[in-house]
């Protein structure tokens, strides 16, 4: 590893941290602009002015906004995400288990969808413009075009109601045996796979097709390589950067964008937690979850950037 590449990576990480800081300001400002008063929503309409004033004092709501921001930021940096207003529970503890559940679901959806998408993309390029390519592209487009809740309900109708293979409600709990857990997440993971598959597959196809125009593909053809070898050995390594980018975007979606799926399958993950607490106007929870989602999103994109840098031989092996 040489100097310029380390410098580039350090730059990306520094930029990511800066971006995260900016996002934290936005989240905090956004929740401040929301109408309503936290003390009022906790105590209800019938609260006496004295009780409201006491609670405001207790929650530190009378301090200026920037003081509250730094207090919040300081807490976040030390691992204290605050206390949920509605349940009076420690947010960090409540999130811990749910974040794990969300990651578990995302992990299995990714394990299935990423290799599948890339293999389908390679196949589509190999048989481009033939019926295999058109079938793959058509099915993939159809599965993306259907809204995820519709896909979810379709799966529930067939697999849970009609054939009763998998449960329609994905209840998981601590200490659940692994196989049970896998069975519980089968349907939401499938729904997620169908949602992200097409995007990754089509990007893989487009990125490789772009490379297939290059002169070195002709060189490979004139060496007598078979079409699939050409795609695998000569085209794919040069298409890796855009593919990684779209894979990371979809990974981020699997973690951040699962709200609808989690609600449909009543899966105890981050998304459901967020939706519940938005309904309850529980601002500290919304802030904490928003920040975690932002961190995941930025983090994955940094990884994509770094992977693209490392995948480039010109940067890896300077002159």
């Amino acid at each position: 590893m040489s100097n310029p590449i380390l410098k580039l990576i350090a730059q990306r990480i520094a930029l990511g941290l800066l971006l995260l800081l900016a996002v934290s300001v936005l989240i905090f400002a956004g929740t401040q602009i929301l109408p309503g008063d936290v003390a009022q929503s906790i105590l209800g309409q019938s609260a006496t002015p004295q009780a409201l004033a006491n609670l405001r004092e207790e929650l530190g709501l009378n301090a200026p906004a920037y003081v509250r921001y730094f207090r919040w930021l300081g807490g976040v940096l030390t691992g204290d995400l605050g206390t949920a207003l509605s349940s009076r529970q420690d947010i960090a503890t409540a999130i811990g288990g749910r974040l794990w559940n969300t990651l578990f679901l995302a992990f299995w959806a990714a394990i299935v969808s990423i290799p599948l998408a890339i293999i389908l993309g390679l196949l589509a390029v190999r048989y481009r413009n033939g019926w295999i390519d058109k079938t793959i592209s058509g099915l993939a487009l159809a599965s993306t075009s259907l809204p995820e809740f519709f896909v979810g309900y379709l799966l529930v109708y067939f697999f849970a109601v009609k054939w009763q293979i998998f449960p329609g409600i994905s209840t998981v709990y601590d200490g659940m045996p692994f196989l049970e857990r896998m069975k519980a997440i089968a349907l939401p993971a499938t729904a997620l796979t169908l949602v992200v598959l097409a995007h990754m597959m089509r990007m893989t196809r487009a990125a490789i097709l772009n490379v297939m125009q290059s002169a070195y593909i002709e060189t490979a053809e004139l060496k007598g390589l078979s079409p699939f070898e050409i795609i695998r050995k000569h085209a794919f390594p040069n298409a890796i950067a855009p593919v990684i980018n779209v894979v990371m975007l979809n990974l981020a979606f699997l973690i951040v964008g699962v709200v609808v799926i989690e609600v449909i399958f009543v899966y105890p993950g981050m998304g459901q937690y967020l939706v519940d607490h938005v309904a309850k106007r529980d601002v500290p929870v919304v802030q904490a979850v928003g920040l975690i989602f932002a961190a995941v999103y930025i983090g994955l994109n940094i990884i994509a950037d770094i992977a693209a840098i490392v995948a480039n031989p010109r940067l890896r092996h300077p002159k």
Binding site: A215, L222, K223, N238
Partner: peptide, 25 residues
Amino acid sequence: GIRALRGREVCYVAQSAAAAFNPAH
């Protein structure tokens, strides 16, 4: 048959070697 002769019996040298080599290998 064609694939077997390409790169074996007949080889090709392109105008722009800079473009004809795969940058990744």
